[in-house]
Amino acid sequence: MSKAVRIVDRPVAAAISRAALSLGYTPLQARIIAGRLSEADLAKLPALLSLQLGGLTPPDLLPDIGIASECVVSAIKQGLPILLISDFDADGASAHAVLKFAFRDYFGVPEQRIHSYIGHRLRDGYGVTETLTDRIIAEAPCPALIITADQGSTDHARIARLRDRGFIVVVTDHHGVPASGPPPAAVACVNPVREDSAFPDP
């Protein structure tokens, strides 16, 4: 028997809600903002809500970002296939789409060289699973560059299988990293929550 679904209202920071309304946000937008921020964020609210690219933290301090960038540039120059693998959830699918559009629309990689592998919720579950790894090994072109989106930090065994088959794996993730560190079979693990990360906003 399945558990009953329980919906819990997120607490709303009343001062944040009032401030968001005064900045011209709709009541719904103000409610969402006030559910995500706390009273401690009140003084910096306008800056937090500024949607300027200059407001983003520069990626330079992400661990392994230089190595990952070099792998991407090398793969594009060599004409290698690019395999994007991600979970099916909102952040995995969104990251997957951003990567695909970036390779196709900004880096000029022909669409036939970009291959998408999105884990199936029921058959694969989350992460670089055995079934997803089996599918990639069975049908993907190789050698190729694999970039994970929203997964991979804890999947060393499957990444090692892919590496041993000739794939180059770059992990991009934001989930926890094992105490033993990022997966050594990946050539890079870009993850702001790594213990050695200097990125200011994990």
Rank of each mutant, 00 (worst) to 15 (best):
residue 133 T to M: 02
residue 102 A to C: 15
residue 76 I to A: 04
residue 26 T to Y: 13
residue 67 I to C: 12
residue 167 F to E: 09
residue 109 V to D: 06
residue 15 A to T: 04
residue 116 S to M: 07
residue 97 A to Q: 15
residue 199 F to H: 09
residue 93 A to P: 03
residue 120 H to D: 15
residue 90 A to P: 07
residue 64 D to W: 11
residue 178 P to T: 04
residue 201 D to F: 15
residue 32 I to D: 13
residue 11 P to C: 01
residue 54 G to R: 13
residue 127 G to Y: 06
residue 59 P to F: 15
residue 26 T to K: 10
residue 87 D to C: 05
residue 107 F to I: 10
residue 199 F to C: 08
residue 29 Q to W: 13
residue 71 C to N: 13
residue 92 G to E: 10
residue 181 G to C: 06
residue 174 H to P: 01
residue 202 P to R: 08
residue 194 R to H: 09
residue 191 N to T: 09
residue 89 D to N: 10
residue 124 D to I: 02
residue 107 F to P: 08
residue 181 G to E: 01
residue 65 I to L: 09
residue 96 H to S: 13
residue 183 P to Y: 00
residue 82 I to Y: 07
residue 81 P to K: 08
residue 150 D to Q: 01
residue 73 V to P: 04
residue 36 R to D: 13
residue 83 L to K: 09
residue 18 R to S: 10
residue 184 P to G: 02
residue 50 S to Y: 12
residue 193 V to Y: 09
residue 135 R to T: 06
residue 140 A to Y: 02
residue 190 V to Q: 01
residue 2 S to T: 01
residue 153 S to I: 00
residue 120 H to C: 09
residue 72 V to Q: 08
residue 122 L to K: 06
residue 39 E to L: 07
residue 15 A to F: 00
residue 53 L to G: 12
residue 18 R to V: 02
residue 8 V to A: 00
residue 22 S to N: 08
residue 191 N to S: 03
residue 104 R to N: 11
residue 173 D to A: 06
residue 193 V to A: 00
residue 94 S to N: 13
residue 82 I to F: 07
residue 184 P to L: 01
residue 173 D to R: 11
residue 155 D to C: 02
residue 14 A to M: 01
residue 40 A to I: 10
residue 202 P to F: 11
residue 39 E to W: 10
residue 174 H to D: 03
residue 154 T to Y: 00
residue 122 L to V: 07
residue 199 F to I: 06
residue 177 V to M: 05
residue 102 A to T: 15
residue 13 A to Y: 03
residue 166 G to Y: 13
residue 4 A to Y: 04
residue 4 A to W: 00
residue 52 Q to I: 13
residue 105 D to L: 14
residue 55 G to C: 12
residue 110 P to A: 12
residue 136 I to A: 00
residue 185 A to V: 05
residue 155 D to W: 05
residue 172 T to K: 11
residue 70 E to V: 08
residue 32 I to P: 14
residue 200 P to K: 08
residue 34 A to H: 10
residue 149 A to C: 07
residue 71 C to L: 06
